[in-house]
Design a protein around this nucleic acid. Structure first.
Lengths: 161, 161
DNA sequence: GGTAGATGTCTCGATCGTCGAGAGATCTCA
DNA sequence: TGAGATCTCTCGACGATCGAGACATCTACC
């Protein structure tokens, strides 16, 4: 192994964590400029992700995603609905469920805030070739898999490969 | 641009966000297994980072790092100190300052929890060559720079290159 | 059909984290 | 030495979260 390779192996975990700190700070700034707290932002992200995936999320599943009790989830939704960031819609298929729809204004605010970051990332990626970006993308997906295993392992033993 | 390259350019921002979500979840699990909240974990990370850098952090600088008021920072430190995760030490050079030292037990708990993740990441990196990892590391540092600019830009205009 | 249990959301009261305002101690510099 | 700046802490208020439980709806079995 070359010295540079050894250095990269040590640095990458550190840089990954710094990256999460910085991206978290971007979210924090979005929160403060819109009068939201961190939980609210995490919830909006989860709702937007679900909407992008085609299947809007329900109140209960949102609570699980952001790790809140049902009482806290209700309060969270009250806040976001009162601010006009989402609508609660009764599921016609299952009258117990409440499905969540983000408002157009919330979508626009998100696009406005994170669009700049998105463009910055795109600009930085210009310095890389297609092949390099494919490699990076594959690497990042590997990291997501590893992190996902440790995030959800039960803690009684090491996460498995 | 090849199709795969175009796809990677679209995917990388998404994967980056998924990665932050997963790594955040790892931290959340650490929090819940140790009776901490997310702010506590962010604070411990900041304190540990500073300690690793050689210059232990002060109460005020920690508050700035985790974006809390001085009142909240005092309460945060009270919590962590009561749990035995840190010690407050008066700065002999400046009697107003309180420098923060993590306890050995907190360091050990962190190492135990995140060591598994670290080993998982190292194992995943085995599948890559030194040159590939150097590229990935460089790419991630670029992303940190971009994110850092957007995290700290004043919002009145786009962050500059 | 009807009933029992499971499921999803909400309400209520209590607790804890965060804030704004300001006090007290210490440092800096004229 | 004194005035202002800086750093941390205290106090009271507010808001986010929780646990327990109520209520409506769905599912499955008789």
């Amino acid at each position: 192994m070359s010295d540079d390779g050894a250095r990269a192996r040590l640095e990458i975990p550190l840089v990954l964590r710094r990256l999460t700190v910085e991206l978290d700070a971007v979210g924090g700034r979005f929160a403060s400029t819109h009068g939201l707290n961190r939980t609210d932002v995490r919830a909006l992200v989860a709702i937007m992700d679900a909407a992008r995936g085609g299947e809007p999320i329900t109140a209960g599943r949102l609570g699980a995603a952001v790790e809140l009790t049902s009482a806290s989830t209700t309060a969270l939704l009250d806040r976001l609905e009162r601010m006009g960031h989402l609508r609660r819609v009764r599921d016609p298929q299952d009258g117990r469920r409440v499905v969540l729809e983000m408002s157009e204004s919330a979508m626009a605010a998100g696009a406005e805030h994170f669009g700049g970051l998105q463009r910055g990332l795109a600009a930085a990626m210009e310095a890389y070739t297609d092949e390099e970006l494919e490699l990076v993308s594959r690497f990042l997906r590997d990291m997501v898999d590893v992190a996902g295993r440790y995030a959800r392992s039960d803690g009684s033993r090491e996460a498995q490969n």
